[in-house]
Design a protein around this nucleic acid. Sequence first.
DNA 1: GTGGTCTAGACCACT
DNA 2: GTGGTCTAGACCACT
Lengths: 127, 127, 127, 127
Amino acid sequence: MTIDPNNPTPLFRQIGDYVRKAVASGRYRPGEAIPSLRTMALELHVNPNTVKRAYEDLERSGLIQGKAGVGMFVTLAGAREAKAEVEGMVYDCFMEGLRIAQGSGIDGGRARELFERAWAEDARRVG
Amino acid sequence: MTIDPNNPTPLFRQIGDYVRKAVASGRYRPGEAIPSLRTMALELHVNPNTVKRAYEDLERSGLIQGKAGVGMFVTLAGAREAKAEVEGMVYDCFMEGLRIAQGSGIDGGRARELFERAWAEDARRVG
Amino acid sequence: MTIDPNNPTPLFRQIGDYVRKAVASGRYRPGEAIPSLRTMALELHVNPNTVKRAYEDLERSGLIQGKAGVGMFVTLAGAREAKAEVEGMVYDCFMEGLRIAQGSGIDGGRARELFERAWAEDARRVG
Amino acid sequence: MTIDPNNPTPLFRQIGDYVRKAVASGRYRPGEAIPSLRTMALELHVNPNTVKRAYEDLERSGLIQGKAGVGMFVTLAGAREAKAEVEGMVYDCFMEGLRIAQGSGIDGGRARELFERAWAEDARRVG
DNA sequence: GTGGTCTAGACCACT
DNA sequence: GTGGTCTAGACCACT
């Protein structure tokens, strides 16, 4: 489950990022429809209005485009950008970690060690 | 500024982490008092009630201890733990980045590249 | 294209106005048949059911009259009224603009200027 | 009452335009707070969520800026733009009227007559 | 009290 | 069934 109601970042943003990642990874393809409001809401155990809000944001950002009575479709331009945006999310996480280390007197070598440990754990998790 | 009112994680938690990092980095030392509610509130442009809530949480977690009418003091045990907790925060950031990469079809080599780029930028930023 | 699916006024109403304007302009003449459901649907890139609903409204308002199995015909009385109705639409647009100006502290002279500018642009557009 | 639930343009957009006009006219001044979600909702006989949505749009467009727990404040840049935007709304109304006239075989002189009639009626209405 | 998020559920136009 | 709008009402963090 990628969506966590206890995470302080709002559900609608988590859902948005969830879709963005799915597009970046090629699971949702340009020209195709993503799951309907209601379907996605059921899938994620969330209220349709919350999904709606996420989809609105995605439409505003150009990733998808809605056709009333039909569905929400991944745009070509959006799909092209999605990969870069997700890489930005990854980069931002790393930067955030380094900034915290930096501001807490954790030296560079130690930060690198922590990255390698996370790397190993991630590899182990996936196999 | 480490405190951001637009950040979805509550201010009182941000303030807590802010103090934790300051302790981990040695800026606030065991046995010494941390800034008073009012001082901290002014420093962070925040309402004293919000700082109060943060300090209560920190006391509950054992990082600091209040002496009525005197101030809040960093405990020895708390200071020892702080470093580990902050390293956990750093580790979690890295892990989060790797997980996003993993779930979006960004391969390991590319993730490593992004880490190195963040590393370089961080070094540049500090000098 | 006079029909816009993103326009908040319902498609069936837009289609109704579209026909009304066509009658007012003499493109559809009294006694003659307007395009069939399917033809109109194809022309406007719209579902035939939506055109059906528009035609039903127009019939109720007396602009056209259906002959089962034959088609929808422009009535004489309807054609006479159409011109006045469309002039009402034009008048309402102007009134709406003046009301907005009025309520926003845009003085009359300035409103007139804006009208002249629109006039010039409209002339340029048509040639 | 500027807000009309029967108007096909969504309430939240009507509310947004309502605020925009109020800023353009100087009723809401830069640096000052506009009515709170709840106050505005009561004033307009509308659900607070609807006002919220309107305010979100206005914030996104830069006209106002929200401070959680405090209020929504008119920005300086937004106030400067507001006048131009409202003039755009007026211009668009006039243009729309001319376009309808144009497409319905109403000649220019007649359109001008309709404008003058609306002008007279508007003057009479205000006094 | 103020903004921010979320749920539950209704009704509409369109396919 | 699909998206789009709206109401009613709850809970949260912050002032």
